[in-house]
C-alpha cells in the first residue's frame, strides 16, 4: 500500500508542465509528500502563428526551473496541493537578456468524489479546484524570455481513472482555466489586428486535456501520456514579431515518465520525465527533461 501512496506523491510531477493537477491518486489523511524537481526545457523551432521557423536572433531558448511542491492529505478524500517554481531563461544567440525569478504559486484542493469497483478493477473520479498567482513582480512583456505570463488563474478539473489489479491504469483528465487580465508596463500594444490604447490586456481562457496509460509493478512505474492545451482566443505572433502575453498558445505533446521507489530508503522516490511538443501555435517546439526527489512524511498513525 505504501508504494501506492508514494505513487500519488510522484504524480505531482505532472504539475510542472501541465501546471494542473491531473493524476488519479490521493495522499491519505495526515501524510505530506514534498520535494523538489528540476526541469530543463529547450526549443529552437517555434511556431510564428502557424508558421514553423527558427530565429537566429534567439537561437535556442532554454528554460531551467526548480520547483518545490507539496501534497498534504487533509482527509483520505481531500488533498491540499501547493507548488512554487523558480525559473530562469536564456537565449543561446543574439543580445536579448535572459530573466529569472520566482514564478507563480499554485494552490489546489483535490477531492476524490467517486470510487467504486467496476469489473475487475476500480473506477475513480476526482474534481480539482486550483488557484495560481504570480509571487514576484516579474515582467511578462519580454517573451520568449519572460519567466511567466503574470496572470492569476482559477481552474476546474475533472479526472477519471480506471485501474486494474495487475498495476495497469488509464487516466483521462480535462480542465477549464479562467485567466485574469494583465497590466503591461507600457500604455499601448498591438494585438490581433488592433492597437489598444491601454495597458490592460485581455487574457483568453484555456482548456486542456490529457490521456495517459501506466503500470506500477515491482517498485517501477512507467507512464505514457498525450497532452493538449488550447487557448480560447488571442492573436497570432505576426511575421517577424515577438510573442505577446495574450497570444493563442496551443500545443500537443507526448510525455514519458519512469519512476522508481528506492528499496533501501523508505518513503523516498526518484522520478524522471521527458516530453516533446508535436505541434503548436505561438509556442516553441520544446523538448524537456525533469528529474527530482520526493519524500513522504507520515504524520498520521495509520501506517
Amino acid at each position: 500500500m505504501k508504494s501506492f501512496y508514494t505513487a500519488a506523491c510522484m504524480l505531482l510531477f505532472f504539475y510542472t508542465h501541465a501546471q494542473t493537477i491531473q493524476d488519479g491518486l490521493m495522499m491519505p489523511k495526515g501524510d505530506l509528500c514534498t520535494g523538489f524537481l528540476f526541469t530543463h526545457d529547450r526549443w529552437t523551432n517555434y511556431w510564428e502563428g502557424t508558421l514553423k521557423r527558427e530565429n537566429g536572433n534567439i537561437g535556442t531558448i532554454t528554460t531551467n526551473s526548480l520547483t518545490w511542491l507539496g501534497n498534504y492529505g487533509i482527509t483520505d478524500k481531500i488533498n491540499f496541493v501547493a507548488m512554487l517554481p523558480y525559473v530562469s531563461t536564456r537565449a543561446s544567440q543574439g543580445v536579448l537578456s535572459g530573466m529569472q525569478g520566482l514564478q507563480d504559486l499554485t494552490l489546489a484542493v483535490k477531492f476524490n468524489a467517486l470510487e467504486k469497483s467496476l469489473g475487475r478493477g476500480t473506477f475513480r473520479g476526482f474534481v480539482v479546484g486550483s488557484y495560481a498567482t504570480p509571487v514576484s513582480d516579474y515582467s511578462f512583456d519580454f517573451l520568449p524570455l519572460s519567466i511567466g505570463l503574470g496572470t492569476q488563474r482559477v481552474s476546474g478539473r475533472v479526472t477519471l481513472n480506471y485501474s486494474w489489479p495487475n498495476g495497469w491504469y488509464v487516466n483521462g483528465t480535462t480542465a477549464y482555466t479562467w485567466r485574469s487580465n494583465v497590466t503591461l508596463d507600457r500604455p499601448s500594444y498591438y494585438s490581433d489586428g488592433q492597437n489598444f490604447l491601454t495597458n490592460e490586456v485581455w487574457m483568453p481562457n484555456v482548456m486542456d486535456f490529457s490521456f495517459m496509460a501506466g503500470r506500477i509493478k515491482n517498485g517501477l512505474e512507467l507512464i505514457l501520456a498525450y497532452h493538449q492545451q488550447n487557448t480560447l482566443g488571442g492573436g497570432d505572433i505576426r511575421r517577424q514579431d515577438m510573442p505577446f502575453v495574450s497570444n493563442r498558445m496551443n500545443f500537443s505533446r507526448v510525455e514519458a515518465t519512469a519512476m522508481y521507489y528506492l528499496p533501501m530508503i523508505k518513503n523516498l522516490a526518484v522520478r524522471a520525465q521527458t516530453g516533446y511538443t508535436l505541434a503548436g501555435r505561438n509556442v516553441g517546439q520544446s523538448f524537456y527533461v525533469t528529474a527530482g526527489v520526493l519524500y513522504t512524511f507520515h504524520f498520521s498513525k495509520k501506517l
Partner: peptide
C-alpha cells in the same frame, strides 16, 4: 471561484 469570476469583467476597451 464565483467571487473570482464575478470580479473579472474582462472586456478591454480599445481606447
Amino acid at each position: 471561484l464565483v467571487a473570482f469570476l464575478w470580479s473579472c469583467n474582462k472586456e478591454v476597451e480599445k481606447s
